[in-house]
Design a protein around this nucleic acid. Structure first.
Lengths: 228, 228
DNA sequence: CAGGAATGAGTTACATTTACACGAATTTTA
DNA sequence: TAAAATTCGTGTAAATGTAACTCATTCCTG
């Protein structure tokens, strides 16, 4: 049993957001230290000896990008020797969802810059972060088949069309508007409001909805089969 | 940036097997060193500086229990401070499936004993290994909803009833024999043979089947919706 | 060789999904 | 100011898939 190892541990966060007419975006920061100085990378860093992995991720997200996140889950641990030029570094990657309009990104001392990038148009990335994002995108695409998605990504009140467009973006195919509405209603996770959408587009303004949090999280916990 | 950490890294393996009239079993070893000396625990141990995580797991499985495994996937990383009395130890847990009849367990130098335990009747376990097994059992139960399961767990040739019983065990509820057969046939992953089951039970002997590996792994890769 | 036991191949009723149509509310254009 | 364009909201019929069930077949046992 090797009592002394020469392995270090980091965490990285893949935080996704949804911007209605733009698509799925991911949070990246610009590095201020070597290696990969000035490269775009996932927010993350070394784990402190006495903090949990989750604490490490939320700490790094706050200090590097000014983002306070409420939904976070573990994604995968990347441990191939050689993935970091400094030596053996194993990274536990996390997966998060936020509504980008809730934050103004604050590139703090630890990062030169912080910004949202469309996942279809990513810059060249540090380390194996491109691979990590690939795995996270897969997870996101699978998630919508067995869990409701939207609460973390959309505004408090939204027209159903926004939710539908989110699903179309993730599934990368058109969905029948009317059948989608029926299925969502059947899940009982939406609350109708007596407000209408402000005139952002032409045509009849849509009713606004919000999520029934209790029902939403109940479904999320139990799992559901949601084939659109 | 802390250049020096005091965190060590281990891997642990949750290897499941299926024993037809008994149920789902998990591989445990009896520890020969402190802490938790003589306790039952998951096979695993410290990662070497220059080996991949997968290599570390397969190495430990071989040396501690004599098990050579072909199906292994990463499960989850457990990193709560305090989970190991020796200090900060983060463990990457893996999830494996084997047919227990293919091995005779060999408790080698690193383990006092190695044995299969029914998941419904586990002994008291070292560290947080009971939690790790819980997470693995959940993964197993979820898996059968979107991936074919059986190839790794059953004999080369088997009657459909064996596969059905496996599903009944995992889902913990009865399944209609005839509908199950129709659905499985519809997936096209079974090859019928002109052999019949030897007289282990009374009644009409069943035809034997094997998996169409090509179709099986294609489905596994693509994912499927398989609601029984 | 009759009865018990489990397999193998349907059939039918029901539920779910898919495809598609039209009127209502609002903005834009002529 | 009226007609056209656009988007929202609701409904229905056909197709498909699932669940429950019937019955004949094959083999072992007594």
């Amino acid at each position: 049993m090797p009592v002394v190892q020469n392995i270090r541990l980091t965490v990285d966060a893949v935080v996704f957001g949804y911007i209605p007419r733009e698509g799925i975006v991911v949070l990246l920061i610009k590095r201020t230290i070597d290696p990969y100085l000035h490269s775009w990378a996932l927010p993350g860093g070394f784990v402190l000896d006495d903090e949990s992995l989750e604490t490490a991720v939320t700490r790094e997200l706050l200090t590097e990008a000014g983002v306070n996140i409420n939904y976070l889950e573990q994604l995968y641990t990347f441990g191939l020797p050689g993935r970091d030029p400094r030596g053996r570094v194993v990274s536990v990657a996390y997966f998060g969802l936020v509504n980008p309009t809730n934050f103004k990104l604050a590139a703090s001392s630890d990062a030169e810059d912080a910004s949202w990038f469309n996942i279809k148009d990513l810059p060249s990335l540090a380390f194996d972060h491109a691979t990590i994002i690939d795995v996270a995108v897969q997870r996101l695409r699978n998630k919508i088949r067995y869990e409701p998605i939207g609460f973390e990504l959309l505004d408090k009140k939204f027209p159903i069309a926004d939710l539908e467009k989110l699903y179309e973006t993730l599934l990368d195919r058109p969905i029948d508007r009317r059948n989608f509405q029926k299925k969502i209603n059947h899940l009982g996770i939406l609350i109708a409001h007596n407000e209408k959408q402000k005139q952002v587009s032409q045509g009849r303004p849509a009713k606004l909805f919000s999520f029934n949090e209790e029902q939403y999280f109940k479904l999320k916990k139990e799992g559901m089969a949601f084939e659109i």
